[in-house]
Amino acid sequence: MVTILLERTVPLPLDEAWRRLTQWPRHGEVVPLTRVTVTTPPPTHVGTRFVARSGVGPLAFDDPMQVTVWEPPGEDTPGLCRLEKRGRVVTGWAEIEVRPGPGGRARVVWREELRVRLLPRLFDGVLERAARYVFGRALNRLLRQAPPLP
């Protein structure tokens, strides 16, 4: 099991940072070899489920997740989303927090606890470095690229 913490301060309003981070299919656009499919009707709420399918061919696996906390930000109040990972291969949780930062910017905090079944603890260091790299890169890309407006 590994735990990662990523933090970014971005020149975006809270609601825009939140929107960029919680459009689930976009995560598949920024994580290599991954496609994300939302399996419940919109809009996102507690109970929303989606699946990230990662890999190629027979080496692919599903990472099903469910939203267990959904508190969008207000004008000057933080927002929090918690996802529980419910897969056979990957378990754990992730939290995305968006809160007011310095100078009217948004402060983003991404916390994640990740377990990969059948991966010995000996590999936790490698898993942590890989997760920090992949999720850090994804976080940067999600925040930089504005999705189309609904």
Results as ranks from 00 to 15, higher is better:
Leu118Ile: 10
Glu95Arg: 15
Phe61Asp: 08
Arg88Ile: 09
Thr91Gly: 11
Phe50Trp: 08
Val67Trp: 01
Arg82Met: 12
Glu75Met: 10
Pro120Val: 09
Asp62Thr: 07
Trp70Cys: 08
Pro73Cys: 00
Thr68Tyr: 04
Glu113Thr: 13
Pro73Lys: 03
Arg115Ser: 13
Ile96Gln: 12
Arg115Val: 07
Gly57Asn: 08
Ala60Phe: 06
Val51Glu: 04
Phe61Tyr: 13
Arg117His: 14
Lys85Ile: 15
Leu122Met: 10
Trp70Thr: 07
Arg99Trp: 02
Arg88Met: 15
Val69Tyr: 07
Pro100Phe: 03
Val56Ser: 08
Glu112Ala: 10
Glu112Gly: 09
Val56Gly: 04
Thr77Glu: 02
Val67Ala: 01
Glu84Cys: 12
Val89Tyr: 04
Val67Asn: 03
Arg86Lys: 14
Arg49Lys: 15
Pro58Tyr: 06
Gly74Asp: 05
Asp62Leu: 05
Val90Lys: 06
Val56Cys: 06
Leu122Gln: 12
Pro72Phe: 01
Phe50Asn: 01
Arg82His: 14
Phe50Gly: 01
Thr48His: 03
Met65Asn: 15
Gly104Pro: 04
Val108His: 03
Val67Asp: 01
Arg111His: 14
Asp124Ser: 09
Arg86Cys: 11
Thr48Asn: 04
Arg53Trp: 06
Leu122Glu: 10
Val90Tyr: 08
Leu59Asp: 09
Trp110Gln: 03
Leu118Trp: 15
Trp110Leu: 13
Leu122Ser: 11
Ser54Trp: 05
Val90Arg: 08
Thr48Tyr: 05
Thr91His: 11
Leu80Ser: 07
Pro73Arg: 02
Gly104Val: 08
Gly104His: 04
Arg82Asn: 12
Glu113Ser: 12
Pro100Cys: 01
Ala52Pro: 09
Ala60Pro: 10
Glu71Val: 07
Arg105Lys: 15
Val109Thr: 09
Lys85Leu: 15
Gly103Ile: 01
Arg82Ile: 08
Leu59Met: 10
Pro120Met: 04
Leu114Pro: 02
Leu118Cys: 11
Gly101Phe: 06
Val56Ile: 14
Glu71Leu: 14
Ser54Pro: 09
Arg107Tyr: 11
Ile96Trp: 10
Glu95His: 12
Thr48Leu: 09
Asp63Met: 12
Val67Gly: 02
Pro78Ala: 01
Pro100His: 04
Trp93Lys: 13
Trp110Cys: 05
Glu71Asn: 12
Gly92Val: 00
Arg107His: 15
Glu112Arg: 11
